[in-house]
Write a protein that binds this DNA or RNA. Structure first.
Lengths: 133, 133
DNA sequence: CGGCATCCCCTAAGATACTG
DNA sequence: CAGTATCTTAGGGGATGCCG
């Protein structure tokens, strides 16, 4: 990479997600998009073929899964391997970078799942209070 | 909480984000929304007043910050404290639940920030390869 | 200062149909 | 099987203006 390209940001600053123009914002958005998180999490369980992944990530449409995987591949989190055969077979797997990030994602999601009951009761309290006003 | 309410999901299953109708999906979406992540992260640094938070989260509009904070409050991640004074003063802070989740978020974001250069070069490779076809 | 209400635009995302 | 192409709609999100 040429020095010119990396000069887009001040070299003295590490990537700062709070800054409007920091590239980390896009990366984070792609990653934490509705289906991005789930696709990444699913792939921590092992490689998946397109339709198997589609079944695993319940509710995702063909179009959105395709698009999500393309983005994840472009950002270097996922590898797409085409096996030329009939019927065609395409395998998706995590890159090393993907695995690293997926570990964090997994932790976050587990915590959120555990917190669901608490969140639900918090919502109820909030809505009850709002209804009184 | 009454047993009836928790029966919405099969009691033998823990919250499963892969299931289409699992409540964890909403919670996760609110949390990982564009501004939700950043607001939560900012509040790990300490309490913030509305406009201070708005300055910290560079680029967020009044409307979206307000909306985001309401959702976070409703879900029990954030506490909103109104101090009746002139000028009015409203403080936002994390709940215990919020602090716990924010820790995971922080880890994820740090990892993403560190990965930005690698992602950028991955994108370049991907785009170059696409351009050749 | 800390919002909510309104208007409006754009893209995220679903449904459907078709291709290699 | 593994996708693209096309169409359509819901809602995310910005700009502006008003209020306690």
């Amino acid at each position: 990479m040429s020095p010119d390209e990396s000069a887009v940001q001040d070299a003295s600053l590490e990537a700062d997600v709070f800054a409007r123009n920091c590239g980390s914002r896009d990366v984070l958005q792609n990653l934490t998009s509705r289906w991005g998180l789930l696709a990444l999490l699913a792939l921590t369980e092992g490689d998946y073929r397109f339709n198997a992944l589609r079944r695993r990530v319940d509710g995702v449409s063909e179009r959105m899964l395709s698009q999500t995987l393309q983005t994840l591949e472009r950002d270097g989190f996922v590898t797409r391997t085409v096996l030329h055969a009939i019927p065609p077979r395409v395998e998706y797997s995590l890159t090393d970078l993907g695995r690293a990030v997926a570990a964090s994602v997994e932790g976050l999601i587990e915590q959120v799942e555990a917190a669901v009951p608490e969140v639900m009761s918090a919502r109820q309290r909030y809505d009850d209070r709002s209804a009184r006003d």
